[in-house]
Write a protein that binds this DNA or RNA. Sequence first.
DNA 1: ATTTATTATGTTATCGATAACATGTTATCG
DNA 2: CGATAACATGTTATCGATAACATAATAAAT
Lengths: 348, 348
Amino acid sequence: MISPSRRKRVTIKDVAQAAGVSTQTVSRVMNKFSYVSEETRQRVETVVEQLGYHPSTLARSLIQQRSYTLGVVTFGLKYIGPSRTLNGVADKADELGYMLLMKELDNFDTNRIDEVIDSLLARQVDGIIWVAPEIGDNHSWVEERMDKISVPVLFLAMRPREGISSVATDNYQGAVLAIQHLLECGRKKIGHIAGPLTWWEADERKRGWRETLSAAGFNPLEEHCTEGNWSSASGEQAFIQLLESYPDMDAVFVANDQMALGGLREAIRRGIRVPEQLAVIGFDNIPESAYFYPSLTTIYQDLQLLGEQAVQSIVEMIQARQENKSVIAQSRFIQPTLVIRESSNFAG
Amino acid sequence: MISPSRRKRVTIKDVAQAAGVSTQTVSRVMNKFSYVSEETRQRVETVVEQLGYHPSTLARSLIQQRSYTLGVVTFGLKYIGPSRTLNGVADKADELGYMLLMKELDNFDTNRIDEVIDSLLARQVDGIIWVAPEIGDNHSWVEERMDKISVPVLFLAMRPREGISSVATDNYQGAVLAIQHLLECGRKKIGHIAGPLTWWEADERKRGWRETLSAAGFNPLEEHCTEGNWSSASGEQAFIQLLESYPDMDAVFVANDQMALGGLREAIRRGIRVPEQLAVIGFDNIPESAYFYPSLTTIYQDLQLLGEQAVQSIVEMIQARQENKSVIAQSRFIQPTLVIRESSNFAG
DNA sequence: ATTTATTATGTTATCGATAACATGTTATCG
DNA sequence: CGATAACATGTTATCGATAACATAATAAAT
């Protein structure tokens, strides 16, 4: 049984009174770097300790018009990608002295977006990080509404746009790495299982597949590619379809590791030997992929780093604005890397 | 090039002035349910629309001593477990009109814990949800310090404690389900790969293994169990060890799916047939486990629900306190369920 | 017709801190 | 030694809203 115990908050006034000084002096002690005699400082600090005083960041934010809080809008937190990114965001925010005010989206209704942004601004966030994938035209509001938002906004995993800051994995380049690797392994008939092509990321990966093959003198056709929804189940289905439309394929680039797992599973069931008959390469490098059967060659994207860079960038933007300097919006890319494992590693 | 564009915030005063009423009247319009003539209401609403006024939640929180914000302390966000839980928390919070103020821990230094709690309280959170696993004595601060915290606190995945509210998966019961299933399959020599035993959850799962076997007339020994650190790599090692210390084992209960994956991998390498020679069962039911080779029988814990219940509970506590009612602290358990797949499904 | 309740609106105090300004004291310097 | 700078502290205004109280007009009740 817990009593309601509404202990009243200890305020700066209580401290001031107990120490026999003005609130301003207490404020000076709390914020350092201002003229306070050593004697007074000690006295105040003792009282602070005794009463267990902690300044209200809320009140401070109000008067200073600055909260040291970042708004974070997420989508699909239950997936490992966004949550890893969020982890990077959280770490870096902590390091730089910011807190995170989070809001998860469950859809992209435009009203909902306005509402979310308003609720963040109403809490005086210093900046907003958008951790939601670009799907279809769900970012179309950006161009028109950006300049109505009074704080810096930074987008993750968004197609670069003029005048808007963003950070993203270079999905295109990742796909290029994957295809080049397969070509180097001597594969000549490389299929692709794409993610949902309304997603910018899925589209970029597919583009990397297509263009790299073309550049190498091959002729990737539409029927050499099927589409999944990122899940293992969909990967399995897409793989079955692809086997039908591209029967003599000798390698497949799958747009993420989960779908690749579904494919591997079906390959085993059909007795297709990986990598001998069919090389498989995924994307993401989830921790489990090293233990798939066979272990999965994949493209590693550092989502943690993505989150960290996002925070770093937006804090720079906030500081620049604070000092009334202009900020140049920029789109940054993070380069993925190739991780070679058994599923492609067949030199013979 | 973005101009500094420090548009001044539209305040309630601006609206009041433009509409020719007092700020109090504007406040009444914004908050509904108070006497305002239809005519005035319309006029004010028009002005609000025109100026794009959005009330400052910050200022409101200050005067009302209530922020409609929950503090969330997390640990290990990069793992799928905590992030799924967080997803549940975020969804439910949204549904109930709360925002989340997040802080990620990177260690359990006691000072750090105080600091984190203080920073949340300084921002006037209405309650705190602790989404960090109980490891060793990292929750030992709870008993002594709980009553110094002026808002309700709710712990997730913590060993039940008298007088403190918590919600957790019933890990013990999950292990019981797993072992009973293996026994029903006719297995008689059941080993266990535990998680790090300093974790309460790992310990509970091991206890379920031990006690269920004992109750069934078997004699589980210490050498029938090895320990991993939740990762697939450690699972592989633990499996190798276990094969040595318990060579004639015919089934193994692994404390999570990732480690089970590492075990499966090694079993394949050694030509051990699963489930014929060795039945394997995991814990968690991560989405990929249905596509392992062979697909993994496992215990499903609904972490999303865990998060939702946590928010539900703490909001009830907050409301009770608001109405000055007493709150009875309670520890709640969520029951996991058995998911049967190939890795154990050998009737014969 | 007078009292009482309901409706509509304004005024002042307040939440907890800091900014901006004012004032007094002690060093420092030419 | 008087002027100026550096130090130490206090007073008042302010951030953006709501609470608490006050007032006035209208409607309903006796």
